[in-house]
Amino acid sequence: MVGNTAHPRSCGQLFLIFCKISLFTVGGGLAMLPFVEREVVKRRNWVSEDEFLDILGISQSMPGVMIVNVATTVGFKVAGKRGACSAFLGTVIPPFVSILIVAHYFLLIKDNVWIARALNGIRPAVIALVVMPILSLSRAALSDKKSLLVPAAVAGLILFGAPPVYVLLGGIAIILAVVLRKGRG
């Protein structure tokens, strides 16, 4: 069974490694993945290349912040529950502290005229950043015109005021029904 070989020393290492990765990668969870791979697969051989891919698979299948899921699973593989806790805390604490500091100062300066003018330019840029993953996902997922209907319907519902939570849950329910029927046949 996985995770039964707990080394007390690796917990501290796990914490520090994930702290470091979390602190020095800017730009969201996906940007952190290559660094996690380098540290735990290539440098330390804690998990194999194949296992790492499986860990990614699980982490993306579970809800929540993906990189936190990756850290938890890697930590669990290396040193059981304590390892999972160490890696988890290492991932969560740096962004928590850094955004706390940034939020504190941002709330003080955001109404400054110059900042407000710069923000007017930054906002459309942020929207363009959000549009990017749509394109990369679409290439893989939307092969024909029919499959365009789903995103169009989802976006339409939410734009006209449907709570995204219910749209998501409804969608998941439909997909589950399809998956269970296909799985049986």
Partner: peptide, 12 residues
Amino acid sequence: LARPLFIGLIAS
């Protein structure tokens, strides 16, 4: 199957 759903969410 869920990918189009996620695309819709991001688009929205």
